[in-house]
Design a protein around this nucleic acid. Structure first.
Lengths: 209, 209
DNA sequence: GACTGTGAAGCCATTCACAGCT
DNA sequence: AGCTGTGAATGGCTTCACAGTC
């Protein structure tokens, strides 16, 4: 079970498979074939088998996969057999929405704090959380042993906030700001660029539509 | 300028380049080289040139690109020389946050309506918009000539809402629900799966961290 | 001298096809 | 007979390297 060089696309699909299996699990389905998973999530069955093969042999030839077992393996592989504490920097509309988003909690991501540098909103409630001052960043990261940070500040502030997160010891960053961030090699960065997604739609509407 | 088969990755990068150029434009920079763009957005200079080459020859050998001109070309290519009217279905936390997100408006995406099927919240204000009943979908899509829909409903309702959007005439869908959606071949679908993104971080923290 | 545009090479992911189990 | 696991083939994106232009 070595992660020598797993394609990122494979990791993303594993996450999707795991949610599909969770659904099957709730429906009390006991076994599933690669073909069924494939149809369920919209990829090819060979793709499903190849993706799983990076991590071991989880199935039985002639039969398929035991749903509960495969689900367990996938959650393990994804590192979701533990809770991850998460901090959000930027308590604007998006930051607050993410702080309240149930989908994260359901998959083991616990939003422990939401920060902002605007004194006018520090102290306001976001569900059961209270918006904290940016000064508290380092303290909170240590207190909750936070490895994952979410950046939802405006573009101008994004690099500065990112540097502070890394300086505080955060090891992985999910960036929602529309700015390309520089991070050291040992910090993992992912960008979720909302406008880019709409713009790809716009492109396709314009040229294929 | 034919979009025979443009890699999706290229289109996403064009969107990023265009924002970088916008920044340069505001800083009154007149010309820029592929190397500078590359450094600015974190790709290779060959990549920048290849991406642009799909659409024409925009530069001058020995000099580089005129910022304003290239920016114009990119906005054109991306279909952002026009306004796109957008409808959001699902007025939960995320839907409301997206409805208020300024980044969309700045790039020419106008959120014209936000709908929900929960009578308890229909009529509530989201900035200057009012949450409308789902019944009004078709009427609103026609009224505003809407081509783009954003789905921010819970997983269970996602396919149903998607079908209704398509039935109403929407041609492109940005799906934020954690459900794989089926759409006809002539409808463009993109998924923004927030949990998947965190789970890729979790995977990398577990195996490379 | 500097930088673009591009064919060729290299690399990586997906698909194919079949041997190997049950 | 049915389905997994996998080497080989394919296809597609990225990088290289250099000819062409200013």
């Amino acid at each position: 079970m070595k992660a020598y060089k797993i394609p990122e696309a494979t990791v993303m699909r594993l996450s999707v498979y795991s949610r599909y299996l969770q659904q099957l699990l709730e429906e009390k389905v006991e076994t599933v074939s690669s073909g069924e998973i494939a149809r369920g999530v919209g990829v090819s069955s060979a793709q499903v088998r190849k993706d799983l093969a990076y991590f071991g042999e989880f199935g039985t030839r002639g039969v398929g996969y035991r749903v509960e077992e495969l689900f367990g393996h996938l959650m393990n592989i994804l590192g979701l057999d533990q809770q991850w504490n998460v901090i959000i920097v930027g308590a604007g509309k998006l930051g607050c929405a993410l702080a309240r988003y149930q989908g994260f909690r359901e998959r083991g991501f616990q939003i422990c704090a939401i920060l902002d540098n605007d004194p006018a909103i520090v102290g306001e409630k976001v569900d059961c959380l209270q918006i904290e001052s940016l000064d508290k960043l380092k303290k909170l990261v240590h207190e909750y042993d936070i490895k994952v940070g979410i950046v939802t500040v405006p573009a101008e502030a994004a690099q500065d906030v990112t540097d502070q997160l890394i300086e505080s010891g955060v090891k992985a960053i999910l960036n929602f700001s529309p700015r390309v961030l520089k991070v050291p090699a040992d910090v993992i960065l992912r960008n979720v660029d909302l406008s880019v997604n709409l713009e790809v739609l716009s492109f396709n509407l314009t040229y294929n539509g």
